[in-house]
Amino acid sequence: MNGYQFYWSIVWDSLPLLLAGAWVTIQITILAFIVGTLIAMPMAVARQQGEGWAYRFSTWWVELSRNTPAVFQLYLFYFGLGAFHINIPSYAAVLISVSFNNAGYMTEIFRGGLNAIPRQQLSASRSLGMTSPQSFIHVIFPQMFKVIFLAYVTQGIWGMLNTSLGMLVGLQELSGATQYAQSASFRTFEFFLATALIYYLIAKGLQFSSHLAFRLIYRS
């Protein structure tokens, strides 16, 4: 142990700072989850078409977001836009890049779910007089979310893990706040161990609450 003295009280004293960071992390996670879902739903339908500009656009989005590191995507929105003198705050950059990443992965998850739903469902709802968007919103998507639920929640938690990159662009989310707090004492290990614990609790909390929501929505 080289005579290293652990010093935990300093972490305890900065707990309010860490919790404030955790709150930013939760905010971005939930916002990026919602934005990603809203973008991914039409893109999954477009991917299923297999042709047309919408298909090509969403294919590009999916391949780009899945085949490059999340940190590259963040730099693209933060430094890349900055080079054009479009300076967005780091909060927005993290939100946009995590949403971008979420949307790409979710599109593929949704597409898998759509494949599992019988084609006749769409024809049946169209023949009942629903428009195409109506039949997707009222008939297809509710069934799809039930099929893909587990993968969908896992992706939400991945999104939460990706918000930690905010540290690299100076955002005071949980990792960034920890980095800032430990820079006064350089008790790196103690601080980041506490942060790891908070991340774990957030992940479990998200998992638990989403399962609860699933039970409430699909109660039967």
Binding site: I157, L161, S164, L165, F189, A196, Y199, Y200
Partner: peptide
């Protein structure tokens, strides 16, 4: 699986 890689790297480094 529930802790970000960036935190794991920093912890491995400091530990």
């Amino acid at each position: 699986r529930s802790v970000p890689m960036i935190i794991q790297l920093i912890l491995a480094n400091s530990l």
